[in-house]
């Protein structure tokens, strides 16, 4: 399993504000404008690298431990991925599926 960015996303990093603005297609036809904090942005960037889920988990843990402990990092990763999936910014992809 790995996570990939949903199609037609446009990322506009705003490093001065520790955030990234994302333009995403909306369900109703119009675009959605979203602001991700640094933590959500990190997840999106890690997923953009196209890692498998296990590698993603390791890369994320290296990035956030410390200041988080390992248990908090695992919980935070699951919550973050669920949030990005719910917002339509990520897609789950099985390994047997072709690379985009």
């Amino acid at each position: 399993m790995r996570y990939i960015l949903a199609p037609n996303l446009r990322l506009r990093p705003v490093p001065e504000l520790d955030s990234c603005v994302v333009l995403a297609p909306g369900e109703g036809g119009g675009p959605r404008l979203l602001r991700l904090n640094a933590h959500a942005w990190l997840l999106l960037e890690l997923c953009r690298a196209g890692m498998m889920a296990t590698a993603l988990r390791e890369a994320y843990r290296e990035a956030v431990v410390p200041p988080l402990d390992a248990a908090a990092a695992a919980e935070s990763l699951d919550q973050g991925l669920a949030l990005l999936l719910r917002q339509g910014l990520l897609l789950e992809k099985n390994p047997e599926e072709a690379m985009p």
Binding site: L34, L36, N37, A38, A40, L68, S76, L83, Q87
Partner: peptide, 14 residues
């Protein structure tokens, strides 16, 4: 993240 941003939960605002 190492400087502390990881302490804030991932957040997406419309």
């Amino acid at each position: 993240m190492r400087a502390g941003a990881a302490l804030a939960a991932p957040e997406v605002r419309e």
